[in-house]
Design a protein around this nucleic acid. Structure first.
Lengths: 113, 113
DNA sequence: AGCTTATTCAACCATCTGGTTGACGATTAT
DNA sequence: ATAATCGTCAACCAGATGGTTGAATAAGCT
C-alpha cells in the first residue's frame, strides 16, 4: 500500500534513523543503548524509534523494564521492490555489491560481537 | 554522502512525487503535462519537481518556453544499494560496508549542471 | 504590438518534524 | 521502604513541508 511506502521512505530520510538501523543490523539493542552514541536526549531517540516502529522497520519488545529493539527487514524489502520497478540501474552496482559480499562476508562471521 | 540519501529518501516519501517518477518512467514530459493528472495547482507540482531535481532524481531542461523533465535513475541507485544492505545481510562488517558505499556511490548528484 | 501559454516567484497558511525539558509509571536494586 | 534506572508522555519551540493564490518572467502566436 502506498501509505506504507510513505512511512518507510520518510523514516529512512533521517540520518539518525538510518544510523540506528545500521546499529541494529549488528544486534538487537535496548533503547538506552541505542541512544548512547547520539548527542541528543533519550526522549528524542525514543521518538525516532517510534517512527521506525510505525514504519515497520523495527519491532520493540519489553522484557522487564528494558525494551529491546529488533530490525525488521521485511518493510525495507517492500520499498526495495518499489525501487526495482525503476529497473535500469542494476548492472554496475549490483555486480560491485556481489563482489563486496564475496570479499567481506566471510570475515564478518567472526567479527566483534 | 549521507546528505544525498536524506534528500533522495525524503523525495520518495511523498506519493505525488513517486507518481511523477512513475510517469517519467514512460517518457520525458513537460511540467504542464506532469501536472495535468493531479488535483493541485501547477505551482505545487512545480515545487515537487524542484524537490525531485534537488534530490537528483530527475533533471530539467528548458527548450523554448517548455521545460522538459527527465528521469535520472542514478540517484535511485544510491538509495537502492543502501537498502540492499539490510535485506541480504546477517551480522556483517559494517565498516567495510560503509567503505563500499563510499567507493561505489561517487557523486550521484553530478547532474547539477 | 498585444494576447496566450509555460513556468516560476513571493507571500502566506496549516500542519508536520525533530529537538528540548520536566514529570511520570514501571521495574529493579539496596 | 527507598532509591535508582528504563522509557515514555506532555508541553513547548523553531524550522521544514505541502499546499494555496496572485503577480511576474519568458517565449510563441497572430
Amino acid at each position: 500500500m502506498t501509505r506504507d511506502l510513505d512511512q518507510v521512505f520518510a523514516a529512512l530520510a533521517d540520518p539518525t534513523r538510518r544510523a540506528i538501523l545500521t546499529m541494529l543490523l549488528e544486534d538487537d539493542m535496548a533503547v538506552t543503548d541505542v541512544a548512547e552514541p547520539f548527542e541528543m536526549s533519550l526522549a528524542a531517540v525514543s521518538k525516532h524509534l517510534g517512527v521506525l516502529t510505525a514504519a515497520g522497520l523495527i519491532s520493540q519488545e519489553k522484557h522487564g523494564r528494558v525494551k529491546w529493539c529488533k530490525l525488521e527487514p521485511d518493510a525495507l524489502r517492500a520499498a526495495s521492490v518499489w525501487m526495482q520497478g525503476f529497473g535500469q540501474f542494476e548492472p554496475v552496482n549490483l555486480d560491485a555489491f556481489e563482489r563486496f559480499l564475496a570479499t567481506e562476508l566471510p570475515d564478518a562471521s567472526g567479527g566483534d560481537r
